[in-house]
Structures are given as C-alpha cells and as structure tokens.
C-alpha cells in the first residue's frame, strides 16, 4: 500500500522518482497511512495508520520516529 507517507527521493533521483513521490498515491478502501498534524496541540506531525472505511486507527507514530525507523 502506497499511502501519504513516502520517503523523499534524493535530489538527483530523476524525474520519474520525483513524479511518483509528488503526485502518485494509492486510494484504498481499508488500511492506509497518512500524515496528521496536531495543529491545536503539540504541533507534531504524526504518521497515522487508519482504515479509510471504518476510520479505525491502528497505529500512530511521531513522524520523526517513523523516518528514523524506516531509514
């Protein structure tokens, strides 16, 4: 599943990689990964795993931690 949370390509990764990163997303019914921003609170960006049909939230991780884990 290709959610909203994608690793940013290297600057020289080429046009295709960048096109893919900037424009292309899956739009599934079911599990999905999104960036959420706690704007009225701690102002952290979060990676939220959510079911787009039921809105059930499976997991939530600070975006910085998520990047460290995935790197």
């Amino acid at each position: 599943m290709k959610g909203a949370v994608l690793p940013r390509p290297a600057a020289d990764a080429g046009a295709d990689a960048w096109h893919d990163y900037v424009y292309l997303r899956d739009n599934p019914r079911g599990a999905y990964e999104e960036y959420w921003h706690h704007t009225s609170g701690c102002r952290r960006w979060l990676v939220v795993s959510r079911d787009t049909a039921t809105h059930e939230v499976y997991a939530c991780q600070d975006a910085a931690d998520a990047k460290a884990v995935r790197a």
């Binding site: 921003h37 960006w45 600070d62 975006a63």
Partner: peptide, 13 residues
C-alpha cells in the same frame, strides 16, 4: 508554519 514543521519533523528530523 505547518510546512516548516513538516520539513523539520517528517523530512529532516
């Protein structure tokens, strides 16, 4: 502000 926080937290922590 949102954009800067995104860059600082999600892109370049």
């Amino acid at each position: 502000m949102n954009h800067l926080e995104f860059c600082a937290q999600a892109l370049w922590p």
